[in-house]
Simulated assay, not measured.
Amino acid sequence: MNGQLAVTRITHSCHLIEIGGWTLLTDPWFSERPAHHPGEPIASSVADLPDLDAVLISHHHYDHCDLEAFASYRDKDVPMIVAAPVVERARKAGFRHVRALYPWESTRLDDRAGRGELTVTAIPARHKVYEVTFVVQGGGQTVYFAGDTLLVPELKELAGRFPDIDLLLVPTNGLRLRPLFNRQVVMSAQDAATLTSWLKPRVAVPHHYAYTSGRLGDRLITKSDRDPQNFVRAVHVTAPGTDVRVIAPGERLTVGG
């Protein structure tokens, strides 16, 4: 095992992942808009981010793909590994190395510092818009970043393809859209616990739960579960061998090692 595995939560589904000596950012969100609020602090500005080896973007919704704010990031050559609809948006934001990954497709990042290989694999997902999620492997460690997907049958394949997941980052708010007859578009705490039971990761960290559409938006547009402890309780029943950790924005969690 090379390098420490750690995750720092910035907000919502935006994390810094340190794996095998590499540092990646997931689903950047660094600003707010009317009816789009993280519901918790944003723990870092774009300017304060460390040097990144890659950025992963699961889909083009603003709260996962805040390219207007992230365009100020200093290195426009940072590799961007994204869902297909994000490609042109990222290029228009000035990023020069943008690649779409499709479900079960993998890419390897070039190493310039003797850290070994880093592999990113796109995983099937389902949301209101097209989405992929990501498995990241490096230094003998594996992370699954589940974006804000629903629980879909294809995710059962993960257990066979990636039998030793060290860290699961998983959405839990069960977001529903009131104007669409309460259609569910994100997995719930119980769904996320079911996924945890399928994958049996060493550690599971919930995300995508504090989000709010504002006082009026929460009453008229969205409906969600904002308590991550519902996931904690569900995992204790369905996957008692997994350590569940709820981490606050700005908190860094080291996994094993």
Rank of each mutant, 00 (worst) to 15 (best):
N2K: 15
G3K: 07
G3H: 10
R9D: 01
R9P: 07
T11E: 06
E18L: 06
I19T: 04
G21V: 14
W22A: 01
T23M: 15
L24C: 11
L25E: 00
R33K: 15
H37P: 00
H37Y: 12
P38G: 08
G39Q: 03
S45P: 08
V46P: 10
A47C: 03
A47K: 05
A47L: 03
A47H: 10
P50G: 02
A54D: 04
L56I: 08
I57V: 13
S58V: 10
Y62Q: 10
D66V: 10
E68P: 00
F70G: 04
Y73I: 06
D77Q: 12
V78M: 07
P79K: 08
V87L: 11
V87M: 07
R89M: 11
A90Y: 04
A90Q: 02
A90S: 13
K92L: 10
A93G: 08
G94R: 09
R96K: 14
R96L: 14
W104F: 14
T107L: 14
R108L: 11
D111M: 08
R112P: 09
A113W: 15
R115G: 07
T119K: 14
V120I: 14
V120A: 07
T121M: 09
V129Y: 03
V129I: 13
Y130R: 03
T133D: 12
F134I: 00
Q137W: 01
Q137N: 07
G138R: 05
G140L: 09
G140N: 00
T142V: 13
T142R: 02
T142K: 05
V152M: 11
A159Y: 12
G160E: 09
P163M: 09
D164L: 02
L169H: 00
L175S: 02
L177N: 00
R178M: 07
F181T: 08
R183Q: 15
V185S: 02
V185Q: 02
M187C: 09
A189S: 15
T196Y: 01
W198L: 06
W198M: 01
L199R: 13
K200Q: 13
P201W: 12
R202A: 12
V203A: 00
H207E: 08
A210H: 13
A210T: 03
L216P: 04
D218A: 14
R219G: 11
I221E: 04
S224R: 10
D225L: 04
D227M: 05
P228Y: 14
P228V: 13
P228Q: 06
F231G: 01
R233N: 08
V235T: 14
H236R: 12
A239L: 09
V244A: 12
G250M: 08
E251D: 05
G257E: 10
